[in-house]
Amino acid sequence: MNVLQFFATHVDEILNATREHLALVVISMAIAVAIGVPLGMALVSRPRSRSAALTVANIFQTIPSLALFGLLIPLPLIGGIGMRTAVVALVLYALLPILRNTCVGLSNIDPAILEAAEAMGMTEPQILFRVRLPLATSVILAGIRTATVITIGVATIAAAIGAGGLGTFIFRGVAMVSDAVILAGAIPAALLALLADFLLGLLERRLRVI
């Protein structure tokens, strides 16, 4: 069976898996952003805690994704089979690029600008929200963009622990030794990644200040 035929006969199934995949990515990214950005902001004037947090995020990133999914299964509350475990793993993966870019963006500000802000009598929170954050926006977005593309790819592996998504076809295709079935999962996943990269890239350029 060739690829086109498989697509034609399994349209509903593929669309459904794409929806599941998107849900996994969107939920994981929302949580990762909600943790990563505020955490980066909180660490702005705490260099030692910052490098500790970055090290921890780095360690998560080094664990092979399939192993991370497997390791999470036996854990209470966050573990088990299914979507919840997958989301936890994807959040851990997405955290590093978001946290790292937030930290870098917020701290790589021209010292003259920070000195002027301080000398003008801006308080620490005012400097954070009115100077650092707007100037770091495009760098933070670049981190979110990288994380999104990674998450779309890694989310295919979530099928291994029963979380559904486009990975379902890939695993099935591998088992059946069928390129058509593998591609039915791989092509939509690749298109999703390209589309997300393109759209977030547009947004990033829109919000660039300098």
Binding site: D110, A112, E115, A116, A119, M120, G121, V209, I210
Partner: peptide, 20 residues
């Protein structure tokens, strides 16, 4: 500190205007 600084103007060589 904040009150003091708002009563004193400060100009530096690099200017330090906010680019955004």
């Amino acid at each position: 500190r904040i009150r003091l600084r708002r009563r004193i103007g400060y100009v530096i060589q690099e200017v330090g205007l906010f680019p955004h």
